[in-house]
Simulated assay, not measured.
Amino acid sequence: MGVRQWFLGWPVIRQITGDDPLGRGSAVRSARTERTVPRTAQADSVTRSICPYCAVGCGQQVFVKDGAVTQIEGDPDSPISRGRLCPKGSASKQLVTSPSRVTKVLYRRPHGTDWDELPLDQAMEMIADRVLATREQTWQQRDDEGRTLRRTMGIASLGGATLDNEENYLMKKLYTAMGAVQIENQARI
């Protein structure tokens, strides 16, 4: 390709000399542009979901190829967000695809300096045992004046911004049933 041919291939020159003076069509298209396809075009499936970050409940479309999430975008059919996502929602793909995401149960023993991998069943049993022991040790049936309390001050819950309304509802029910009174949530962006 000569210099003249290369120069005439510039989009601005094609725009000025061609039939697309506003630069909205063929003047701005190139061979590379023609080969470009959206990241979502090759997805095997698209699943509708809800953004996990706050209680707003923005709709998301999750694009999957070969069993892996390839893209997450706002769902234009969502009556709540109408296809829009905040910066956190737009970056939510990182929740499932980040190489630094922990996917195994890690446990650091008391006074330990290293993390050990545990089977999920063992970790769940350890948590249940500790919750029951703490509740038993800190249970207050009555106060000093004989008034019924039925509570524990040894267990508390602090929810975060990645919990949705349903999860918060279930956590409130669970902790209340266990007798906890300190149940809080930070659900702001």
Rank of each mutant, 00 (worst) to 15 (best):
T36A: 11
T36I: 07
T36Y: 09
V37G: 02
V37H: 08
V37T: 10
V37D: 07
P38G: 10
P38M: 10
R39G: 11
R39S: 08
R39L: 11
R39Y: 09
T40H: 00
T40F: 01
T40E: 05
T40K: 01
A41G: 03
A41C: 04
A41D: 07
Q42R: 11
A43C: 02
A43S: 04
A43L: 03
A43R: 00
A43G: 02
D44G: 13
S45M: 13
V46A: 11
T47I: 12
T47E: 11
T47A: 10
T47N: 06
R48S: 03
R48C: 01
R48L: 04
S49P: 01
I50W: 04
I50D: 00
I50T: 06
C51E: 12
C51F: 03
P52H: 04
P52F: 04
Y53G: 00
Y53P: 00
Y53C: 00
Y53S: 00
Y53H: 14
C54R: 01
C54D: 12
C54A: 06
C54Q: 01
A55P: 02
A55C: 14
A55N: 12
V56G: 05
V56I: 15
G57I: 03
G57D: 01
G57T: 03
C58F: 07
C58N: 06
C58V: 07
C58Y: 07
C58K: 07
G59V: 05
G59T: 04
Q60G: 10
Q60R: 13
Q61I: 13
Q61W: 14
V62C: 15
V62N: 14
V62I: 15
V62Q: 14
F63R: 02
F63D: 03
F63M: 01
V64H: 06
V64G: 06
V64Y: 05
K65N: 13
K65A: 15
K65R: 15
K65H: 12
K65Q: 14
D66M: 03
G67P: 07
A68P: 00
A68L: 14
A68I: 11
A68G: 05
A68S: 13
A68C: 10
V69Y: 07
V69T: 14
T70A: 15
Q71P: 01
I72C: 12
I72S: 12
I72V: 15
E73L: 15
E73C: 15
G74V: 04
G74I: 05
G74E: 06
D75L: 06
D75T: 03
D75P: 02
D75F: 03
D75H: 03
P76C: 06
P76T: 08
P76Q: 04
P76S: 04
D77Y: 03
D77N: 13
D77E: 13
D77C: 00
P79R: 12
P79Q: 08
P79T: 12
P79Y: 10
P79G: 07
I80K: 09
I80S: 05
I80T: 13
S81V: 01
S81D: 01
S81K: 01
S81Q: 01
S81N: 03
S81Y: 00
R82D: 09
G83K: 09
G83W: 03
G83R: 08
R84E: 12
R84M: 13
L85N: 04
L85Y: 05
L85P: 02
C86R: 11
C86W: 05
C86L: 11
P87C: 07
P87I: 08
K88M: 10
K88G: 03
K88T: 05
K88Q: 08
G89V: 06
S90I: 01
S90V: 02
S90K: 07
A91M: 14
A91N: 12
